[in-house]
Simulated assay, not measured.
Amino acid sequence: MSLFSWLRPAQPMLPEEVQQRVESLLAPSALGECSLREQRWVVLDLETTGLNLNKDQVLSIGAVVIEDGAIDFSQQFERTLQCDKQKLGPSVLIHGLAPSAIAAGSHPAEALLAFMEFVGDSPLLAFHAPFDSHMLGRALKDYLGYRLQHTFLDVADLAPMLCPQANMRKAGLDEWIDWFKLQVFDRHNASADALATAELALILFSRARQQEIQSPLDLQQRLGQWKRRQQAPSL
């Protein structure tokens, strides 16, 4: 045994059928030169027990698909995950998730595996994507021993990049919904927030095309350049 083997977290012991499903998951595709309209995007929102990246847990997953330039309502995902009652905090009240609903939820491993099968090889969009990416990645590692490598683009960065006239660099989802005058009748649960984020993303894709950003790869590269400029020290 290696001297440092105890530092590595143990791999979860999975039933053979589950392990086979994990091994059959599609590898993520790199963003390419197809048009923004042709790309299949999975728009994700997570509800969690809190905001601690290392301790809090995923409570629910909501996702919708953008494909062929529109939200495809035939492709939606919603799942509540079981969670230890001791880990439930005040955020549960905000999400509207009753303890009974959480107790009756899916086992996290099953819910997470079903979600990754739903994602396939598609890139992901989220509002404040680094948080969702980290929480989802940690849950997948803990419950399935799976390493998340899918591309995430952050709608919270795309919006100010493509709409600098709004002058809202650090705005939240509600503020962008108000700025674009979107009619959103439900918020603060995973599915509703994923849908609101998808509606915002469609507007932003239209703005991107107006700015000669035609492909997912173009969008990713332009976003990277914009973020580096934002982080550069001002002279």
Rank of each mutant, 00 (worst) to 15 (best):
H95L: 00
A63Y: 01
T151F: 10
D174T: 13
E175Q: 14
P28G: 03
G120E: 07
S100V: 08
E67R: 07
L153G: 07
H134W: 10
S206R: 02
Y146Q: 10
A198H: 01
G89C: 06
Y143N: 14
F73L: 05
D132I: 05
P99R: 14
A190E: 03
A104S: 11
E17N: 12
A111L: 09
G96W: 03
I66E: 04
F205E: 01
V22L: 06
G137Q: 05
A232K: 07
V22P: 08
A109G: 12
M13S: 15
S5W: 08
D186F: 04
Q231P: 05
E38Q: 01
Y146S: 11
R8F: 11
I203L: 09
H150K: 10
Q230W: 00
E38K: 04
R222P: 03
L26A: 15
L14V: 14
A114F: 02
H134I: 13
A171E: 05
V22C: 13
P9W: 13
C163M: 14
G172K: 12
W179N: 03
F115D: 04
G120Q: 07
W176D: 09
W179R: 01
L217I: 07
K170D: 15
I71D: 08
V184T: 03
P164L: 10
D121N: 12
T48E: 05
D84A: 04
L46I: 03
L140R: 10
Q221V: 12
L112R: 01
V65I: 10
S133K: 15
A156E: 13
L88E: 09
I71H: 03
M116E: 04
E47Q: 03
T48H: 01
Q214E: 12
R222Q: 15
P108V: 05
R229T: 06
D56F: 02
L112G: 05
I66D: 03
K85E: 10
S35T: 08
G105C: 11
C83P: 02
E33Y: 09
S133A: 15
I66L: 14
S191F: 00
R169S: 12
L97C: 03
D84P: 02
L153V: 12
H107D: 12
W179S: 02
M135R: 11
L26H: 09
L51T: 04
M161A: 11
Q165N: 13
